[in-house]
């Protein structure tokens, strides 16, 4: 049973991030919820590559035949984190600019032009 719980955690984090975004009233809060949803992917990626009782895949003091966790997922999560951080930064810059031009950061009051 604990096995499935390990994977329910990232699913829950993702979904709660989405819900936070759906009900958000502040753009910075929205971007942070996006960050939360993204962190669910980090958790999932790293969980998938884990091995119980294994060491890190750095073989400076152990032989490379020792049981180690998956290095590929760790490299993938590194890429993912950088992507996530930069997208968050970009969105925050957008939020800042929107505040300067529209005077509000409430998504419900921000409607682009229609035609």
């Amino acid at each position: 049973m604990i096995g499935l719980l390990a994977f329910v955690v990232p699913a829950w984090i993702f979904v709660i991030g989405l819900y936070g975004m759906a009900t958000s009233r502040h753009l910075v809060h929205l971007v942070m919820c996006l960050s939360v949803a993204q962190s669910a992917t980090y958790v999932l990626i790293l969980e998938v590559g884990y091995r119980l009782g294994a060491t890190a895949p750095v073989f400076s003091d152990v032989l490379s035949t020792v049981r180690a966790t998956d290095p590929v997922v760790q490299a993938l999560s590194l890429t993912d984190i950088v992507v996530g951080a930069t997208v968050s930064a970009l969105l925050l810059a957008f939020a800042l600019r929107i505040y300067k031009t529209c005077g509000t950061v409430d998504p419900e009051e921000l409607r682009p032009m229609r035609g």
């Binding site: 604990i2 096995g3 390990a6 994977f7 969980e47 998938v48 590559g49 884990y50 091995r51 119980l52 895949p57 073989f59 490379s64 180690a68 966790t69 998956d70 290095p71 590929v72 997922v73």
Partner: peptide, 13 residues
């Protein structure tokens, strides 16, 4: 959980 089976990581290690 904790039983990563796949060939990719093992081969690289």
């Amino acid at each position: 959980y904790g039983h990563y089976p796949g060939p990719y990581g093992t081969l690289i290690n």
